Computed example of a mutant assay.
Amino acid sequence: MVPGRDLGRSGAADAAAPDAGRPLTIRDVARDAGVSVATVSRVLAGSATVSAGLARRVRESVRRLGYTPHTVARSLASGRTRLVGALVPNLANHYFYALLKRLLHDAERDGYRLMVADSDEDLAAERELGLNLLAQTDGLILCSPRVPVTVLGQLVARDKPLLILNRSIDALPVSQVIVETYPAMRRLANHVAELGHRRVCYLQGPARSWQGKERWRAVRSLARRGVDLTSVRVEATMAAGHEVVPQILRSGATAVLAYNDLVAIGVVVGLAEQGVRVPEDVSVTGYDDIPFSRYVTPPLTTVHSPQDEVGSVAWKAMAGLLQGDRPGGRTLLAAQPVIRHSTAPPGRPR
């Protein structure tokens, strides 16, 4: 026996390793995992006929040996690319980071790769990117799509797995995962009204965002409580929030409800530069609860939208579609207001 040598699993792997200089093959993986070549092939093709325990053993051997399947050959054999597209409207929006990270993780766990594209809020680009991704992948996840329903119908007509996130579509047989925006945003708006604010400025986001429309619908309910409401259209960025501060000050608003956390953070910084204190002089709220929101000064009152959960549930739905589930299912997830230190009763008039 060689001192210190582990003759357990790693020793078996060493014994099964191919000769130096010879490329790894599927037979090496099968030998290492203690299964047949056919079983390895089914696992790599994503077949549901292999038990979870066997599939896990095969994937561990693949990782341990550093085996890389021949993508073209595997695609030709299975008729699948093992790729799934994910199209977002704006990668500069941090909301999509945690969502995409979860999608990437869960897709990789199941033997898929994610191909991510950004339409940059351009409707023509969103349509073309969607069609191109469907042509190159086994399915497509549309994150908060902006295009009209007619264009979504063109994508559905490609007869490939299609999943829509954070937009409600009743006119098409398409699967959806939706965070319910309206109830949480209405509770946040009521929180501001209950603090005593009677002049509020709402910063609306992208005009074609379904989530944005739902948030505005919730904020408009403040009018029934006697609140004087002003709205300003902005892009969903910190720079946009910063730039709109002079308009906010001219409106005389004592509270600002922003489309998302990025806009709200820009407002907080812009107000501070003008000598206006948050929340003593003006209250500010955001939406999404991105990591930055709890670390700004003051920590931001916002709505927590479960990005990681959306990603997890979305991949589960897409995996089902890839395995032949019938399209059209709808999963609703809840959002929750998070009250921190950027809101308070209105101070003295400015």
Rank of each mutant, 00 (worst) to 15 (best):
L114K: 04
E121T: 04
W216H: 15
V227K: 05
L133C: 02
L188V: 06
P299D: 12
V232D: 03
P183Y: 08
V200K: 11
R348V: 09
R109N: 02
D120L: 14
G275F: 11
R158Y: 06
A107H: 01
R146T: 03
W210K: 15
L131W: 05
D28Q: 00
Q136D: 14
A157G: 09
R80W: 15
A45L: 07
R127L: 13
A335T: 07
E108L: 15
T137F: 01
V84P: 12
A98C: 05
G130S: 09
M318D: 10
R199T: 13
R326P: 04
S51P: 10
V245C: 03
G205C: 02
V116P: 00
L271Q: 04
Y202Q: 03
G320E: 06
S231C: 03
Y295C: 02
V2A: 10
G46H: 14
V192C: 08
L65T: 07
Y259C: 09
E235N: 02
L99T: 06
L129K: 11
V219F: 07
S168C: 02
R109P: 02
P299K: 06
R31H: 04
D32W: 00
R56M: 03
V263T: 11
A107T: 04
S41R: 00
N166M: 06
A38E: 01
R127S: 10
A86H: 09
D19I: 07
D170P: 13
V192K: 01
V151M: 01
V43C: 10
R277W: 03
R109T: 12
A207C: 00
Y202C: 00
G266T: 04
E108Q: 15
R277Y: 00
S51E: 07
S209R: 11
A239T: 07
A317C: 09
A20C: 06
R224Y: 13
V62N: 09
V219S: 04
T68Q: 05
M1K: 09
E194N: 07
E280S: 08
A45I: 04
P206Q: 11
L104V: 15
V40A: 03
S75Q: 10
R220E: 06
A117H: 01
G270Q: 02
A98N: 12
I339W: 00
L229F: 12
Q211A: 15
Y259Q: 05
Y259V: 10
A13T: 15
I339K: 06
L91M: 13
V174M: 06
V263N: 03
V50P: 09
L203C: 02
G66N: 01
N190V: 13
H341V: 02
A15R: 14
I169C: 08
A13V: 15
G286W: 01
R186M: 05
V232F: 08
T343L: 01
L152P: 10
F96P: 02
S209A: 15
V200F: 07
D308K: 02
Q336R: 14
G212M: 08
L44R: 11
V50W: 11
L65E: 06
Q154L: 10
P299A: 12
A236L: 09
A13K: 10
A236V: 10
L152Q: 08
